[in-house]
Design a protein around this nucleic acid. Structure first.
Lengths: 210, 210, 210, 210
DNA sequence: CATGAATGAGTCTTCATTCAT
DNA sequence: GATGAATGAAGACTCATTCAT
């Protein structure tokens, strides 16, 4: 089940290998173009050209420009969400501090790995349907975080879902600032350190006092 | 001195009363249109139409579409930054917890008051020059927050500037989520409560232990 | 009697001194703007601004933009035509060679004095009515030249009018080339020399052999 | 190598037959419109409409309006220059008078064949890059004429290049006058006769006396 | 008379989308 | 299936001209 309205659904599932290669090429190209020319500059012609296919072919796989961009956003959110989920799965039964550290570590790493795309993509949310994707991605991450909080062995939360939501938002904000600033190497470590403090501080303040 | 490049500067200061009315109408209209149609849908024609003036008049006061949008963003950032600065001025010499509470209170109130605009505006940063405005606004707020932290009577910070930056980002994130969710009344109070916990928790964790 | 259709007539004859000053200012300004921005860049607003008057005032004296430009063209053609007429009046009863020399001398001098305007103005002929002005100017000059040719004491012409027309055209062509090339000082004397040869050569070839 | 800046270069070479038809239609249409509405009236929309294609198609082959007009000018200058070059090639080793006659004959014929376009095009020189085209065309013709003068068997010139330049200018002037006057049949022969006299007279006056 | 704010028709140009080949 | 030429609606922006103050 997809969270997207019918209009944003991809046109067909590419099953054959050539098709898959084309779709992959288009995705790659759209990322490149998005980074180089911005959202408004990401035209279908440009993407097709970069991908080495014709515009016609592009429309074979995506109903329209929005669909193409939405697929990109979805793919990216998927990547980040998966990273957080993995971190959660690996840390079941740890302490609150260990959990916080692992969460921040995974999140920062995932974001940094796709720094440029991440930044460029945020404009897509404005699109019809973009918000839904964003929400879906966030929901997955919140769920993963809620699960993590639930399995912490030295603390408990009255409303783990809400705490997850807040913490997620609180991590995203400074992270975006860093990306906007060009994500200079020198500032990554301090940010991670502060985010760790933030996560630990907030979680301890929010936990049910024993 | 403005942070904007020459291209984003307004074209002329409205002096006569008729002019001022026109400019005001355009600002009002651009907000309305921005909320209703999104950034990409905020066309000069639509804004002029909504404002009840001709496109020509719009261009009498704004060099181009970007200028118009930038003016809007600037005005909004100004409002929020001022609110935070005021809160800071009122709370000199308070405790850390009191300061955190006042900060969150002021920030949430300012954002909520302009909820719709706030949301719509974030796309403007993509524009040429938009990032500069955003940065300028954030810098003002960070300065105000750094001053607040410096005057707290029961805590000290090794690097108050960095702490301010992180905390600001951490407040903005969840706040945006709330706005994106439509800012339902029922969720405002919980958010404020959690943000307060977040701010207190983080600041205590980040302060220099005596 | 003017050669212009009603539409290109100036709106009113400025009789009062203030009016005359305004008109003069507009003329000056339009020349400056024409030189600096080209024909297409010569907007009414720009001219008015440069002249230090309001657009409204400009329209007090000129029915529309075309009229203003036409007046400029007329004034310039007048100047050049007068120069040639004067040369003719001074040289009655001279030899063919002396007459040719005087003609070229006067023509080159007049054109050079208004080099920049001269160049910029040629685009105006395209306007509705512009061709008529051009024709009128040329007719005056042809008449003056025909008179010159008639008073030459050592030669006679079967059709002095036609010879004048051809000679005028033949002078204008190279002169325009020079102006287009930026009228570098170094090339003025050679041009004058060659034009003199041209005029003498042609007139001797065209005269009725005695 | 073209004399044009990158901006005036055509966008793509039409390869398929359909494309070539489109480009041809656009060229035809632009000539028609130019003649009927003048340079300023030659709008992209009008040309496209007349060509029976959409504006979009026009922009597929020309980067912008200027490019389209420049292509037209270039094409015309090419035609005339070729005519003069051909005349020169055919007349090597003739006498001065024969050469002069052939030159005038070729020039007048070429200009008359494209009378209307010729006239309308002269305004294009005002465009950015237009002057360069004009210069290039003139240079080609001057070179051809210089070669002709060099191969004349009964005369020699101290500076054949300069003489060519002057003579070219002197031919263009009266020719333009004729075109401006509507190029009535009755006046063509007399003009050619006078231009022949002019060319012969000037060349004899300018040649190095043996 | 002067002013200059307002007007809006008219330009150029782009780009998502289609469809004949 | 692939191609890319053609489409045309829509957007940004200009500027000659008018008219209320």
């Amino acid at each position: 089940m997809s969270v997207l309205p019918d209009t944003l659904q991809a046109r067909k599932q590419p099953l054959q290998s050539r098709s898959r290669a084309t779709v992959e090429a288009i995705r790659e190209a759209s990322i490149q173009v998005l980074i180089a020319h911005g959202l408004a500059g990401t035209t279908t012609t440009r993407v097709a050209e970069r991908a080495g296919v014709s515009v016609g072919s592009l429309y074979q796989y995506y109903r329209n420009r929005s669909t193409m961009l939405a697929a990109l956003l979805e793919w990216h959110l998927d990547t980040v969400a998966s990273a957080v989920e993995d971190a959660g799965a690996r840390k079941r039964g740890a302490t609150l501090d260990e959990t916080a550290d692992a969460l921040i570590e995974a999140f920062v790493a995932a974001k940094l790995e796709h720094a440029d795309i991440s930044l460029a993509l945020y404009g897509i949310a404005e699109m019809h349907g973009g918000a839904a994707l964003l929400l879906a991605g966030r929901t997955r991450m919140e769920a993963a975080m809620t699960a993590m909080l639930g399995s912490v062995r030295d603390a408990r939360f009255a409303d783990a879902t809400q705490v997850s939501a807040i913490l997620l938002g609180a991590m995203v904000g400074p992270m975006c600032d860093l990306l906007n600033a060009g994500a200079p190497r020198a500032r990554v470590a301090p940010l991670r350190a502060q985010l760790t403090l933030l996560a630990r501080g907030y979680l301890h303040a929010a936990k049910v006092t024993p």
